[in-house]
Amino acid sequence: MNTRLPHGSIPILSSEKIDVRYVAKLARIALTDDEVERFGTQLADLLTHVDALAQLDIASVSATAQVIESRNVLRDDLPRPGLDRDVVLAQAPASQGGFFRVPRIIAVKGEAS
């Protein structure tokens, strides 16, 4: 099978530059201006390598999410012992009265991305 498309008929991948600030916001990683610059260059470089994939004719190919085809690997609705709260909260950066304590939440659930 010829897996290559004729030149020029390929959807462009990396021509749109990666918006590092937007992506870092989504990923909740604070970046300095230097990092934005450095990562921007490095990631754009990596994306040019990834562009090679545009050469593959994949129109009629199915996507592989999992390489081993299994189905319906389920469990019965039966309880299993969990963890002691003391053990769990001992690892928490902050806790109070049996709860995890977290800094104030500004975003409304389902609103923030």
């Binding site: 609705d77 309880p79 299993r80 969990g82 709260r85 009265g97």
Partner: peptide, 20 residues
């Protein structure tokens, strides 16, 4: 039990006692 683990699916109770 819960959707993906064997912890009890029960309303209420002491906080963080039905966890794994």
């Amino acid at each position: 039990t819960k959707m993906f683990c064997g912890c009890l699916n029960e309303f209420g109770g002491e906080p963080n006692t039905k966890v794994c």
